[in-house]
Design a protein around this nucleic acid. Structure first.
Lengths: 367, 367
DNA sequence: CTGAAAGCGCTTACAG
DNA sequence: CTGAAAGCGCTTACAG
């Protein structure tokens, strides 16, 4: 072995979950055991076992306890196929991602969202079905298939567009769904929405306070509801700050598009003194472009990213960001979906919204 | 609306799939229809319908055709719960990720891998069950639960460690599994392995050719099998190049650890003239540290990242990388698992290995 | 409070 | 080549 050292594992902010923490003993599950086995051992009918195990009336407290004990000792798990055949939920929720995998891989949003979703569904005995598709038509087909095959009990809708066809689709299909978006409503669907007004206002007032008046935006996909919402919010906030609404360039959220947009903006005259980016990857790309053009950040231009990630912390300077608790958003959405699946009526609710976290990429305006 | 432009969507390299392309017509699946409905309409027994739909002998070609036609016209999908209750596969494979979500979010590997997996399983009517956990103990519990609940037909094992307990665990549980690793074997499990020797040799010879002799490595998790394999490969390659084996610092793959390791290396004297990173995020962090220390890349120090991503292309300079086809790796693993689930014996096979893709971060050695 | 029975949608020996 | 029947593991009215 050659010289080596361990830099040490930084165990900060581990958002991962281990719900079934209880039975750590190595239960041998070779032969699958059924409620019939339990019934035989307990000397009762399978019906009684079912009642006991599902907390339903029909058995004495004593029988219930004994049945449960036997079930545990035998290492029994319900066969979900059998359960769902007699009408119970299958214990799975679905998430379809309709963005190119190259982008999905780089946007930390999804994995963090998923981690949040997991943190609540795992405790309820649910699992996550994931599907990556090319477009919304495929996404709708996936929902039809999942539902007709009884694969999921409900789905989470993300990345809502203006006039999103998926809303009508899930309603037509009869598939329980919860929408995660920045709008307050999505057809008749329960919504977990994130406010854009307050954070946009916070961001803009901050930049204005730093002396910026020529502010530009490198925005995301134009069709996205959150883009529309943010556009509106920027217009309102600009009006209340008494400046022109920031000009917006629309992109596909890729670093490539972000770089190109930044180049366009930087080569105008007069050039903007501050740029607000729709995601972190474009902001990082923008920072590179600034370097490429010999511009110093934040001396010559200030950069502000929407949504934080480790990416934003390892650049030089580290990026000022609008940060929100994405795992919490996922958890909230999952909770809403589980209630919906259980038949409860779920009100629209506000998820965590973004807050300004200034780091090194924003400063006093150049001129 | 204010001034706005569209920067244009770069539709390159979209790795996303839409398998059920055939029936785009909006089938109304409100009332779930069963083979009994088909049987009634066709005037045959449900058994005959089952034979017809599953391509099994027992019905005439004529009946088979008619039954199929009716099934299609009715928009029938098999109820997977019912199928699995009578012993068929449930049509799902599982993937458990045991890394902190903060890291998962940033490593593009997983999403690309998943996209590759999807591309083959979706065509076979399978779906992906995803689970994010804290550690391997939780991972094993998830396997036990999935299998005892009949939720998945098999699982894909990634991020193998030296002496990985999961190998023995899935064998004990009886859960079909395929290991994806850089070792050639994993207990009795079918393996899709990626060679490290050739790429390590290619990387090292390239750096040596550029005049580098003081080469250091910022490696990943020490316990990982691929780390061990790469350590060994570097030692061999160094010997055959006639240089000292590159010194390795071990990290948790995070940008933070990558930055710290880079700082340690850069502040030694003499400092290394080239650093090889275990992933892209650490390389990006390393690039920032170089800037922070006033060192020019590649003039003062060359940087080489393992595994490519858009990240590596948007830095300044863009990072030279060791690139491999990760979606293809996922696809190959999925194919192997599907064969295993179907009862076939699957040989160990070599997945795509990394190749050098020099960009701007590597150059002639400083001294 | 408890047991015997039907049924969920499918598959698969088993007779005809 | 075809039909009638049992069974997969569970839930849930229905009698006792």
């Amino acid at each position: 072995m050659h010289y080596s050292e361990d830099v040490g594992v930084s165990s900060s902010a581990h958002i991962a979950y281990c719900p079934q923490g209880a039975n750590t003993d190595g239960v041998i599950t070779t032969a699958k055991i059924t409620i019939r086995d339990i019934a035989t051992k307990a000397g009762v009918s399978t019906g009684a076992v079912s009642y006991a195990l599902n907390d339903k009336p029909g058995v004495s407290a004593q029988t219930r306890a004994r049945v449960r004990e036997i079930a545990t000792s035998l290492g029994w798990s319900p066969n979900l196929a059998a359960r769902s055949l007699s009408g119970s939920p299958v214990g799975a929720i679905g998430l379809v991602l309709a963005r190119p995998a190259t982008l999905l891989g780089v946007e930390p949003f999804y994995m963090q969202f998923i981690a949040g979703v997991e943190s609540v569904i795992a405790n309820e005995g649910f699992t996550l079905m994931l599907h990556v598709v090319a477009d919304q038509a495929c996404e709708i087909q996936a929902y039809e298939k999942w539902w007709s095959q009884t694969r999921v009990d409900g789905v989470l809708l993300v990345d809502l567009h203006d006039d999103d066809p998926r809303i009508e689709a899930v309603e037509r299909i009869g598939l329980p769904a919860v929408a995660v978006t920045s709008r307050r409503e999505a057809g008749g669907l329960p919504v977990v929405w994130t406010d854009e007004s307050a954070p946009v206002s916070e961001a803009l007032r901050y930049l204005v306070a730093l002396g910026h008046t020529r502010i530009a935006r490198v925005s995301g996909l134009r069709a996205l509801a959150c883009t529309t919402e943010r556009d509106r919010a920027f217009e309102e906030a600009a009006a209340s700050c008494g400046i022109e609404p920031p000009r917006a360039l629309y992109t596909d959220f890729s670093g490539e598009d972000g770089a190109r947009a930044t180049r366009l903006l930087m080569t105008e005259s007069p050039r903007p003194t501050a740029i607000v980016y729709g995601n972190d990857i474009m902001a990082v790309a923008g920072l590179s472009v600034a370097g490429e053009l010999g511009l110093s950040v934040p001396n010559d231009v200030s950069l502000l990213a929407w949504d934080d990630s480790v990416l934003c912390q390892i650049t030089q300077p580290p990026l000022s960001v609008m940060k929100r608790d994405i795992p919490a958003l996922g958890a909230m959405a999952a909770r809403a979906l589980l209630s919906t699946v259980a038949g409860g009526s779920v009100p629209c609710q506000a998820g965590p919204s973004s807050r300004l976290l200034p780091r090194g990429s924003t400063g006093v305006a150049a001129d």
